[in-house]
Design a binder for these strands. Sequence first.
DNA 1: TCCCACAGGTTGTATATACAGGCTAGTGCA
DNA 2: TGCACTAGCCTGTATATACAACCTGTGGGA
Lengths: 242, 242
Amino acid sequence: MTSTSIPRYRQLKELIIRRISSGELRPRDRVPSENELVDSTGVSRMTANRALRELNDEGYVERIAGVGTFVADFKAALHVLEVRNIADEIALRGGEHSAEVLQNEETPADANAAAALHIETGTPLLHVRLVHFENGTPIQLEDRYVVPDFAAEFLQQDFTVTTPSAYLSSVSPLQEAEHVVRATLVDVATRRSLDMKDGEPCLIVTRRTWAHGRPVTFARLCHPGSRFELSGHFAPPGADAL
Amino acid sequence: MTSTSIPRYRQLKELIIRRISSGELRPRDRVPSENELVDSTGVSRMTANRALRELNDEGYVERIAGVGTFVADFKAALHVLEVRNIADEIALRGGEHSAEVLQNEETPADANAAAALHIETGTPLLHVRLVHFENGTPIQLEDRYVVPDFAAEFLQQDFTVTTPSAYLSSVSPLQEAEHVVRATLVDVATRRSLDMKDGEPCLIVTRRTWAHGRPVTFARLCHPGSRFELSGHFAPPGADAL
DNA sequence: TCCCACAGGTTGTATATACAGGCTAGTGCA
DNA sequence: TGCACTAGCCTGTATATACAACCTGTGGGA
């Protein structure tokens, strides 16, 4: 016996998510109807219905009675999924984005990261540290950890071209994000990286993101407090809607 | 014909939510089992199952296979629901909370509020403005709008005793919250209320909260930037988990 | 040409039924 | 007394079936 078997409606959901992640199904594409899933996979319509209904509730697809089921337009879902990318934000303001990678390594999880990502301390994690610039001014230090089996080739990316967030979104739709925001003083290394004065407060956003129902990445984003008003707003869920 | 009829699984959900909101069912209390709902309401077990399953997904109840369904312990769910109360935060730090109500009125919705709450411009809204103090120091200006039919007696509360957030949570469990955080300069009146210097930046959290699937309240929380590091962290979803 | 009616596909909901698996309390045996 | 087993309730899932409501395209009638 292979432990507890995975329910069929869940398998169906995974199947469709894979097709979306792989690019086989693109935003606004039509997803197989309940009856087509019944024919192609042999499940009952109620099972297909549950799979599609849950994908709808989770924001992967949009269903229209009498018409069909379609891959969600992730642009419209941004305020729910919160996969906003700092490069896009800067572009929106008309600024020019660049980045400098400070660190890029595999590292064992410390207690903090382990707790945040629901793994054992010491488990290998992918770790990247980089500074984002807007028109040459440092505006964010990103310190990110990624669970390896979510995105094995994460460290091989060129983060001066694609931001970590953008790459991770391309691997799989990100499901859910948690944020903690606080203002504190930070260490010398961070202050230097962000070109900050001693005593200047830093606004820190800790963001944890879920995919496939489990936390897969965890980032500490540090913004210089004195320049924060200049960099406009950054947006936890809901920014677009307001 | 009374327009489109409300589905029975939804009626069942509302029924149970009402029992929770009214206090008839308290956290950790047992919720009627699927079979009991079948007997008492005449629906089929699958319909009862769907109602309870969705209440589970939405965080209202917790289900344990083989045991039963129980009202969620909202303390444990805090990091998901984000109904954190500034008075509780202050108490956690050992401080003493007090509040001063600046304004308390019914007012027509302006364009901003209308868009945020999915209502027509000009619809009456309940509006409260108050300052929260920690040990006598102003630390937050709360500017809150509430949809009247969600909490008709909102304005009659004594907000120096119960914070708006605490009162709203007691009316009905709050389902979902959206946040926008940004740092800006604010107007003179706000600066005065918070005892801030000219040119001192303000950290603004805009919070929109859902209940019963629709936005019901919308708050602008303003914190003096220079005192923010002193007031510790404030916590969008996930604070506890980290 | 324009408009209405309808057929057919699609989602949304509701029910009856069935079986698997988890948990608990209580029974009965050693 | 203490332990093992089981009956019974609970949730979780799967299926077949049924009807309602919705949307679109098509074809026929005015």
